[in-house]
Design a binder for these strands. Structure first.
Lengths: 218, 218
DNA sequence: ACAAAAGTGTTCCTTCTACACCCATGC
DNA sequence: GCATGGGTGTAGAAGGAACACTTTTGT
């Protein structure tokens, strides 16, 4: 027998950086350290449901806003000094939320850079696995749109790839690739001026779930 | 609190078909039905270690012979009528073993076609997830070699792809692709005549862990 | 000799890459 | 006007698909 928890790797892009939602621990062990949000799975509750509930409780976010999937399960004996705890980690990719941590349980939740180590428990490793999963998934799936608001420009979508992959992509080739890939994005017909320069068309997510051919990391 | 188990999706290729190792249940519930092998995680045991131990116990196989990874975790309330059981599923890709189920706990373990439904618990779904993971991984990793013995021919490796993907691949283009992809396979210098026809060179796995560019499903 | 499987060469076509160039706006 | 970002065209390189053809064995 073991306690079963869910931990959440909530990723978003804020101020041009990949960020993760962390909470500051208010009790021992690891008092005062940053940790992934999470909590116990209820007796009559499915794992996905528990993760979605925690997401709502910790962030006030609708889980359907972005993308949500099981990441992996961690159960090394001793990973929690209080006893045997097996945690099922979930990964969510979310748009930069207008009211990020509103009405939250954890009043001390905060978006932090995703590459800072020093988290409680084995959360450094869980976070690293989540970031790596996100990097890989952008190649074969249209999930980059999960980081964007419902309507977005091609430049904003390119910014997602550049931030997550830590590379620069050619704006011209990226535009062609994304707009010609079947079902990746759909034009809304509207356009908007973000900075200076020519107004950009707005797009929304398309129906595709896979990218054929993929968009490979340089 | 919940009971934590590991379940194993052990895949191999036998007689030209993708097969999975199943055990016939000797106790209720699901008495007499086929199920994935598995068992309880010990109190002081890591999840990976428990899975590797079950693999040895059920099959007598060295886990390093093929490939081994965590698949996903399943914890729907009621998936086991005896109580709350959360199971961490592992996926292994194994060569066709000379002595498949020797010295095994489960004397009734047997290789069965991987596409037959009717398993106990939610094992149909776990198996389907494992097969889909295997299909996807062959595209961008060199893991097809995990289904092969230490030395193998290009035709045997092609047979792995054809069986797992349920397609035909052009032998000539496949040969070129595999032998020129950096680190996928290495020539041993030996050759062997399998059927009729010109003898084939033997290869062993190369050091690569990713395929660049990938080998996409047709 | 013939069948069968292994392996090479070649041609065509799609996709990637790099970059020249035009477009539409704010200032 | 000019700077700035949005978007199109195009030439060359790289990789994939189709298939003719040669090599090396068993029978």
């Amino acid at each position: 027998m073991a306690a079963v928890t869910v931990d959440l790797v909530l990723l978003t892009i804020r101020r041009g950086a990949l960020q993760v939602l962390l909470v500051r621990r208010g009790i021992e062990p690891f008092l005062g350290q940053w940790a992934l949000p999470g909590g116990f799975v209820h007796d009559d509750e499915d794992l996905d449901v528990a993760a979605a509930r925690e997401l709502r409780e910790e962030t006030g976010v609708d889980p359907t806003a972005g993308h949500f999937e099981q990441l992996a399960t961690y159960g090394t004996p001793g990973r929690d000094p209080r006893g045997r705890v097996v945690t099922v980690a979930y990964l969510a990719l979310l748009p930069d939320l207008p009211a990020p941590v509103a009405g939250s349980d954890a009043a001390h939740a905060e978006w932090r850079p995703a590459d800072d180590p020093g988290l409680a428990f084995d959360h450094d490793r869980i976070l690293a696995d989540g970031v790596e999963r996100a990097r890989a998934k952008l190649e074969y799936s249209p999930l980059a749109t999960a980081f964007c608001p419902p309507e977005f420009t091609v430049a904003e979508l390119r910014g997602v790839y550049e931030t997550v992959w830590r590379t620069r992509l050619d704006p011209r080739n990226f535009h062609r690739k994304v707009t010609t890939a079947e079902g990746f994005v759909e034009p809304t017909g509207h356009s908007v001026t973000r900075d200076r320069g020519r107004p950009a068309q707005l797009f929304r997510r398309g129906p595709a779930t896979l990218l054929h051919p993929p968009l490979l990391r340089p």
